[in-house]
Simulated assay, not measured.
Amino acid sequence: MLNALAADRARIADLDAQIRDLERSLSVLRSENSAAQERLDSYKYPVLTLPNEIVCEIFVHFLPPYPICPPSTGPLSPILLTHICRGWREIAMASPALWRAIHISGNDDLVSTFLSRSVLRPLSIHLNEWQQPFDDLAQDFLAPLLPHCARLEYLTLRLSTYFGPPLIDAVMPLLQRIDLALDNYSESPLVVLRPVPLLRAAVLNDCAAASTALPWAQLTSLTLTMMWPHECIRFCRKHPVYDGVEVTLPSLESLTLTDPPGVNEHPMLSTHLRTFITPALCKLQIQEHFLGSDPIQSLTSFISKSGCNLAHVHIANRRSVPETSYRTAFPSIPTLLFSRAGWRDSTSSDDESDSNPYE
């Protein structure tokens, strides 16, 4: 018994010695740990030393260029920038430029948040209800927008069937471009435009064109989509600058006439260029059969009647007239381009080789 007690006392003494050695080792490790942490705490990451204005500019370039609307949520949204760290969240929330382009789709409850954070910046709005019936819920998305219509610069509405009062009836003095696509005709305009002195561009599909009243004479760009050429002409003849024979577009700078998909050289198309008077026109893209049986005479007559100074003419599907004849007839046009097929054809012609106009 006494021998066992003596052995335990010796064992305890040995364990105490080992514990003291381990504690000394732990003390050294804790000291090294503390010194390493102090060095880390004292280090300033270069990106965190940037002025807030530079960080904001980087954030702006993270998003698509204005007026393109990024998604409201997800990896390409400005919301993502508020989830990185507290400092960057504060910068993002205090940067109105990040919140001025708003994409409204689905059950989106962030519209009011974006509008509030954009402060007084001009707005770009994209409402997309194209894939589902337009209902009261979608109309509710526009409710918080209406008090901010005076800030609207760019407006895109893609709407399924809707019959009702105007969705937007407000003053929009900053509006520059409107893009409307409907999948059904409406007897009354869905967007009522009060004086819009800055409006220059409009994109309308067939249903929107039949349901929209715009200040046509001040437009410099008009795009009609999902329409046959004869429908485009019928549309033009309805607007206020039509005098019964011709359509005068005094501010139009670019005009493109091409066949709709699946249609080749429709006989009705050859008379369409005569319909337009475009004194400000600078750029004309046209398929040769639009110029009729005598393309050079047709183009000469159009230029003379419009009084325009064309700087760029691209003739596609050239077949009947050599390029040299065009160049001889129109020496004052700096850029004359030709292609055998559509606008993106870079095939060289019989007479000489031309560069691709889209390069």
Rank of each mutant, 00 (worst) to 15 (best):
S77R: 10
Q132P: 00
L222A: 08
P46S: 07
L40H: 12
L110P: 01
P197K: 03
I315E: 02
V196R: 00
T225C: 08
M226Y: 03
C207H: 14
R20C: 11
T324C: 01
D259C: 14
E253C: 03
R39G: 04
I68H: 10
S306V: 07
N107F: 13
D135F: 06
L40K: 13
S72P: 08
S42Y: 03
D243V: 02
D21Y: 00
Y162E: 03
R30I: 09
K238W: 00
C207G: 00
E38P: 01
R274P: 00
A36H: 14
E23K: 13
D169Q: 06
A7D: 08
Y154Q: 02
C149Y: 07
L22C: 10
E246R: 09
S332V: 07
N52P: 04
I19K: 14
L157C: 11
F302V: 09
L80V: 05
A170M: 02
D169H: 09
G262C: 12
A213N: 11
A329N: 04
N264R: 11
Y45T: 11
P147K: 08
L157T: 09
T113Q: 05
S348R: 11
Y185Q: 02
L214Q: 10
G292H: 03
S31V: 03
I125N: 07
K238P: 00
L198M: 08
L193Q: 01
S251G: 01
S27I: 06
Q218A: 08
S42Q: 13
S188G: 00
P46R: 10
L50Y: 12
A6R: 14
G87R: 15
L269Q: 13
R194Y: 08
T220W: 00
R234Q: 12
E23W: 03
V192T: 07
L29E: 15
R158Q: 11
D179Q: 06
T223I: 11
A329S: 14
Q37Y: 03
D14N: 12
D206K: 13
S325C: 14
T212I: 07
T220S: 15
S306N: 05
R9I: 15
Q176I: 00
S116H: 15
S320W: 07
R9Y: 10
L123M: 10
A316G: 12
T278H: 03
K305I: 04
N317S: 13
N264H: 11
S325F: 13
P197Q: 01
I58E: 04
R237N: 09
L155N: 07
L182P: 00
H314V: 09
K283H: 13
I233T: 04
D108S: 14
A181V: 01
W228N: 06
L214A: 10
T212H: 02
W343T: 09
P51F: 09
H83T: 02
R151Y: 08
A341I: 08
L159P: 02
R340M: 07
